[in-house]
Design a protein around this nucleic acid. Structure first.
Lengths: 123, 123
DNA sequence: CGGAATCCCAATCGATACTG
DNA sequence: CAGTATCGATTGGGATTCCG
């Protein structure tokens, strides 16, 4: 990356876009929310899938991998057979939950207004 | 839209995902930021493009259309020739800026930690 | 049980060209 | 100037199958 070439892009100093690329991915915010609701408790893979309606095994898997690589989620494997894998938010992940919760609150309070604007624009 | 159709999915009671679908789109958050920085002032199309490095005419256009339909941005056309089109955040758009700014702050403060986690995971 | 691998479709985005 | 139209490349993500 960093094509210092020509039409060169925005600035690498814009972490916001990079963050939105991550949390904007289809299932990430829901996974963070579910894990945040669990508080200190760990949540197993299947349980997460149950609590995130519509998510496929694959997408939940890649989503959790991504969050784990980013240091937002911690993964713990019980070496039993069959294995049990537990997830929880890291401290960093919990700190992200704060602004994310604010965004959720905004969404809950204002999506209706956005829907109304869209309906009005549909003329 | 209005996923009353079929591709329908999880619960419609989750406005967060729908919001993230919008602001998570590549240029939306940057456009909102630039418009927010302008405060009460209006910003012209070309000026927005100048302030959002890398955005194409087309993408800026569709982004602004989307924001306008959502009632987050107001569009004003001066019927001169050539025309001048001005954009500004609506009150709703300004209210979105608040949680969005919080997310930006988080991003600026913690993306480095995420990058470090990624580097550490690259083993 | 919790993934990894593969396939495939749909949406997104960029480049380019054209218009009022 | 501020778009719209079209096309092609890239990506996201769902379904399915296989593995430890």
């Amino acid at each position: 990356m960093t094509p210092s070439g020509k039409g060169d892009l925005f600035d690498p100093a814009c972490p916001t876009r990079r963050l939105l690329d991550r949390i904007g991915t289809k299932w990430t915010s829901m996974a963070v929310k579910v894990l945040a609701e669990a508080g200190e408790d760990e949540v197993r893979f299947a349980e997460l899938q149950r609590r995130i309606p519509g998510v496929s095994q694959k997408m939940l898997s890649v989503t959790l991998q991504s969050l784990t690589r980013d240091g937002l989620v911690a993964r713990r494997v019980e070496p039993t057979v069959p294995p049990r894998v537990h997830y929880r938010l890291t401290v960093l992940g919990q700190s992200l939950e704060v602004p994310l919760a604010a965004l959720r609150t905004w969404a809950e309070e204002n999506m209706a207004a956005i829907d109304r604007a869209n309906a009005a624009a549909a003329d």
